[in-house]
Structures are given as C-alpha cells and as structure tokens.
Write a protein that binds this DNA or RNA. Structure first.
Lengths: 213, 213
DNA sequence: AACATATGTTAGAAGTTCTCACTTTGACAA
DNA sequence: TTGTCAAAGTGAGAACTTCTAACATATGTT
C-alpha cells in the first residue's frame, strides 16, 4: 500500500471530489459493492465469491461492507434482486412488437429466459441453484411470482381466457417447468453435448404449441 | 475431549477390533467421510458444508481427509458420484413391471427423477445446481450420459424405433428438460406455491403423451 | 522380526467472515 | 460560521476455515 494519494477507480466519483485524492467516504459504496459482487460472481462463480475480494475490487477495507449489509448473504441477495429486475425487464421488452395472443409470445419469453441463464450464469445459479432456498426474503418470493405472472398472462391470452383459470395455471406451470429445465441444462453444459444440436427457437416453438393445444 | 477410550461411532468397525478402545486406524475412513459428508450436505445444505464438520462427525482430526481426498471439492464429488449411482438404480428399478413401449415408463422415470430431487435435495443441488460446472471429471460426465441414455432408450421403444434417431434424441431432450425443470421447481419451492396444486403423476403423464405424439 | 507403506496425529500458515473501538467527514442547527 | 452528531470509513483481532508439513503408529510382506 504505497499510495496515500490515489485516483478514484469507481467512476462514480462525485463532482465536488478533487481528482487525484482518495476520498475517505466513497460516495456510493453500497452500489459499488453490489457491482463488484456481481462481477466476481460472474467471473469466479458464486462458490468462490468472497467479501474480501469484493472489498479489494471496490478499494475499501474488509470491514466497510458491514456498514451497508448485514453479512455476505445479504450482499449476494442484493445482487440477485437486481438481476431479477433486469431479467423481468428483458422478458417484457422481448414481447414488444409481437402480436397479442400468439404462441410466438410464449416462445419469446422462453428465449429470453434461456438467454439470461447463458449470459448471466452466476446470477442465474444464485437465483435458481439453491442458494436462496434457506433464505426467506419476501422480495425474492415476490420477484419470482411476478415473472411467473408474465407467463401466465400470455398463456391466458393464447387460450382466449380473460382470467387465470386453473387450466391456464396448469399449462403455464408445465411451460415454465420446461423452459426452466431447458435453461438449466444449457446453462450447465454450455450447449456442448446434449441439446446443442437443436435450434433453440425451434424447440421453444414446438413446446409452446404442444402445451397450448 | 475427555475420552481416550471411546466406543466406535461408525458402525463399520472391523471384527477384530476390541470394543471400547479407539483404533488409531479407522478401518474405512474414506467411506465414513463420504457418509458424513452426505449427511451434512443433506442436513445443513451444500453451502454450509465444511470439512471440519465432517471430521468431527467421523471422529478424526481435520488433517485426516487429505490422505483420502485431494481437497474439499473431491469429497463432495465423491458424494455426488455415489448419489448418481443410486439415482440411476432407482430409475431402473422404477421401470420393473411396467409394460414395454408404454408412455407409463417415461412417466415412471420422471416420478423417480422428481423423487430424488425431493428426497435428496442436497445431492441434487450439488449435481445440478452448478457446483460441478467448473469441474471436469469424466465420471460426472459419464454418469449424466448414462441417465439420459435410460430415457432415450425408452423414448425409442415408445416411438417404435430400434435405434436412437434424431427424432428420438429431440423428444428425449424435450422430455428431459421438462422433468429436470419440474424437479428443480418443486425442489426449490417444496411444493408450497406454484405447482403444488397439481398431481405429479398427472402432470408427467400429460407431458409424456404430448411429447411422444 | 524388520521394514516399507498406508493412514493416522499435532502444529501451524494463510485466508475467510464478522465485531469492536476508533477516526473522518458531511450535514444541519444554533 | 461554527459545533455537534450520525453516517461511513479504518485497523486490529477473534474465531473459524482449508490445507500442508513433519511426525507417529499400525499393517502386511518378506
């Protein structure tokens, strides 16, 4: 540690902050730590993530995070919650421009679901790989319900229903199971062996139609 | 640590071992550690598993495992491999007595797959939750292929094919995705919310028929 | 019986999470 | 403008981890 003067590495430096001098207070350490955690989870994998690594990346002492998070778990949960929001936003965006009540909308949701698993495997694992199993956080619960709700509403429209009937829930559940499993398999195996030979869009279209008829 | 004389807690004591006196050598520490690891993974969850806990449970020093396993990861892999063998055996056993070339055989495999996820959630998570992603062990690879092979062979028979055609592989892959996703969802949520309202056997039967026709 | 090998043990290095007492800073009231 | 307080940093260290190194003790082969 040779530098007492130091150029900020965060990019979130406040305007009034003199450049070339390290601020004692960070500005927005919470956000910086979440971003550092996200990066590390993606690059090293959730298992290898350590709070100390995140501190090193953010350029603060190892005690600093505990002013913003209860513990390591809460840091990871924060990253998951942020990821889920992006995931939902992506799925909604994927529906833009696709005719209402068409199975293609279901396919589009599935494509986006798989894309998230492949593009952000670290967060996907944290969210669905069991890490959250023993954590009862209403925000995690609620986020999952919302995502499922998007799918259910599309299924209802495709089936010509106005509400979420039991039949809609059942078909939605089956579709969700399939897309979830497909995502996990591709996520695990990186398209290498099983499944890699098939066109993703074809598979999703196929299943959407089978499940809606 | 008050006892120098100690009754073996492992149940795998050798016959010649005088009862009431702790042996310096364990007898089969490798197996005992695998069993301890399995128990802890199921009771505390894979994330909370520590080698030291396993040592305490097996009644040996924390350095002992390293005579049998390269590191912590290798201990967990050993547990996964043993679990996969049981999983395969269960699936094959579930087929007994079910008429050949009937979709009910596919359903039976699915039921067993889900049962494993619910009965041995710790191992299920280790195997499929991403832990093995960065581990390239041919035995893990091979085990997965074998399980998938069981399904493929049943699909082929149902479709009246003699070999594993592309159509068979495609249907098998779709079925597997579904069952895998279903297992994961039920595993995560313990049947609590989504999906718990439906009869498992019905769902599997439904999907098997949709995918085979 | 003796020796080589396998399989234990203790001690400890390096790294982890998290707490505690302390310091610095920004904000706001007087 | 200035004094004070709360928020948000710091360093030190306790308790735990994984894993290594050096040593001790059984086992089985000759």
């Amino acid at each position: 540690m040779t530098t007492t003067k130091n150029i900020s590495t965060t990019g979130t430096q406040f305007e009034g902050q003199p450049v070339g001098k390290k601020a004692y207070h960070h500005g927005d350490l919470r956000a910086a730590l979440i971003e550092a955690t996200r990066q590390l989870v993606e690059s090293k994998g959730p298992d290898s993530f350590s709070v100390s690594d995140a501190c090193r990346l953010a350029g603060v002492s190892t005690a600093a995070p505990y002013k913003h998070f209860k513990d390591k778990t809460e840091m990871l949960v924060a990253v998951v919650l942020e990821g889920m929001q992006r995931h939902r936003a992506n799925m909604l965006a994927a529906l833009e421009g696709i005719p209402e009540a068409s199975p293609e909308r279901i396919t589009a949701i599935g494509m986006e679901y798989v894309a998230f698993a492949l593009n952000e495997p670290g967060i996907f694992r944290l969210k669905f790989g069991g890490f959250t199993d023993r954590i009862s956080d209403p925000r995690l619960e609620e986020g999952g319900q919302q995502s499922f709700g998007i799918l259910l509403s599309e299924v209802a429209k495709c089936r010509g229903e106005t509400g979420i009937t039991e039949d809609v829930r059942r078909r939605g559940f089956l579709l969700w199971s399939f897309v979830h499993g497909l995502s996990f398999i591709l996520h695990n195996q990186g398209l290498a062996d099983k499944g890699g030979e098939f066109d993703l869009h074809d598979l999703l279209e196929d299943v959407s139609e089978r499940m809606l008829s």
